[in-house]
């Protein structure tokens, strides 16, 4: 589990996070949602230490993250995998080399063992026959899968995904969502996804934190979203008339 306690962060006098407290649960797909500029990415990067908060604590189970030394932080980060919005793949490396990179850097595995692990991860994200291709030679959806394969190659305990569906068509986005959710269950990971894709919210949102203007606006699960009277949820999640209609139909079928 990862706990954020009273996180504050300002940039040039503008307070972006205003005391965020939330528990991200183990073996669940935890979602951070909100409008653009709500502070989602800042919160996600604060949780992994890419942005240092002005105030507050982040706990990885029983470890106070911001009390760790640089060496201890690097040790903990070997238990962390992250999928970036732009995938952050190394252009000069093949797909296989990209996925193998963390193993090359941090393990003493033999080449054959590393190769087996890489192939397992690529199989897991349903990528075949791309080992020797370069990131520029494959599609955006495939690059996302490579990003996921690299994020899970070290068998992390914590997985962070920054806008995993950005730039993908709805079908591919759904496949990526299902992939992240099933990997979370299989590996018993704490997964935190930052998204504003409402399909993701309704498909995989087991534990949701809704941010508005740097504050916690609402917390709950996808099931609770359907039944909440919260006006902010109403305006944010079911923003279009089409989605409002769908919601009413769904609620009708519950009755």
């Amino acid at each position: 589990m990862i706990k954020a306690i009273n996180i504050h962060k300002s940039f040039d006098g503008t307070e972006v996070l205003k005391g965020i407290t939330f528990d991200f649960r183990k073996s669940k797909t935890n979602l951070i949602i909100g409008r653009s500029g709500a502070g989602k990415t800042v919160l996600l990067k604060t949780l992994v230490g890419l942005i240092t908060p002005d105030e507050g604590e982040v706990w990885y189970d029983d470890i106070d993250f911001y009390k760790l030394s640089l060496k201890e932080t690097r040790k903990l980060r070997k238990k962390v995998g992250m999928l970036f919005q732009g995938n952050a793949l190394f252009d000069s490396m093949t797909i296989e080399e990209n996925v193998r990179f963390p193993l090359d850097m941090f393990t003493d595995m033999s080449f054959e063992e590393k190769q087996e692990q890489v192939n397992n991860c690529l199989d897991r994200v349903e990528l075949e026959g791309v080992n020797d291709k370069y990131p520029a030679e494959i599609s955006g959806g495939m690059q996302k899968r490579v990003g996921i394969a690299r994020a899970i190659v070290m068998n992390p305990e914590y997985l962070f995904c920054d806008e995993p569906n950005s730039g993908l068509d709805p079908k591919t986005a759904l496949i990526i969502d299902e992939l992240i959710q099933s990997i979370t269950k299989e590996n018993n990971m704490t997964t935190i996804i930052n998204t504003h894709d409402m399909n993701s919210v309704m498909e995989i949102g087991e534990n949701i934190l809704l941010l508005d203007n740097g504050e916690v606006a609402w917390t709950g699960s996808r099931e609770e979203i359907m039944h909440t009277d919260n006006k902010y949820i109403e305006n944010f999640i079911f923003a279009s008339p089409f989605l409002k209609k769908l919601k009413n139909q769904a609620l009708g079928s519950y009755k």
């Binding site: 990067k45 992994v48 230490g49 890419l50 932080t73 690097r74 040790k75 903990l76 980060r77 070997k78 962390v80 995998g81 992250m82 970036f84 919005q85 732009g86 952050a88 793949l89 190394f90 990179f101 963390p102 850097m105 941090f106 070290m154 962070f160």
Partner: peptide, 14 residues
């Protein structure tokens, strides 16, 4: 800019 350095940091790399 492409967050590759961030990705390396997350891996625990100096």
């Amino acid at each position: 800019q492409k967050e590759i350095i961030d990705a390396m940091e997350i891996m625990g790399l100096n």
